[in-house]
């Protein structure tokens, strides 16, 4: 398996769950190590499953970090606008259902096809398509009106 091909995708998927760069990187690497031990033939789906399970374990262990927490860890952003946008995205995503948030990340951040998302989320393609459409509309609305 070509780790390079999946590394960024898994990192982003985990980052959206834990909201902490260092932790996301640790869990990304742990995901690949677990996957390599399993010697599974179907990387994409199992990588996401392993990553999701690791995030659940992490949730149980510690409280997930917010954008402010990350700021406290000296993660600097060049522009104030950038920080405001990040805060808005974070809050808008927090308002989505966890399953919808996961589908949004898989589709719009990792560019996964609908069929693959359906397999990862164990849903029909139609259900994924419908929920993604609703989640996207909600996300746009929240971002446009500043999370009102």
């Amino acid at each position: 398996m070509d780790i390079e091909q999946y590394y960024d995708k898994i990192y982003r998927y985990i980052f959206y769950k834990v909201n902490n760069r260092a932790l996301a990187e640790d869990l990304t690497q742990e995901t690949f190590l677990k996957f390599l031990k399993s010697e599974c033939e179907e990387p994409e789906r199992f990588l996401y499953t392993i990553a999701r399970n690791l995030c659940i374990d992490e949730y149980r262990r510690i409280k997930p970090m917010t954008v402010e927490d990350e700021e406290a860890l000296n993660v600097s952003y060049e522009f104030e606008d950038d920080l405001v946008t990040r805060q808005a995205i974070h809050e808008a995503l927090e308002r989505l259902e966890p399953e919808d948030r996961e589908m949004v990340v898989l589709r719009f951040v990792n560019d996964e096809p609908i069929a693959e998302i359906a397999r990862i989320c164990k849903m029909s393609r139609f259900a994924v398509y419908r929920r993604l459409k609703e989640a996207k509309a909600k996300l746009k609305e929240l971002l446009e009106r500043g999370n009102g």
Binding site: Y7, R21, T85, I89, H90, V104, F108, V109
Partner: peptide, 14 residues
């Protein structure tokens, strides 16, 4: 724009 904003939020790993 939504896609770009979401991708920029996650950034890239070190």
């Amino acid at each position: 724009e939504l896609k770009d904003a979401l991708k920029a939020y996650a950034g890239t790993p070190d």
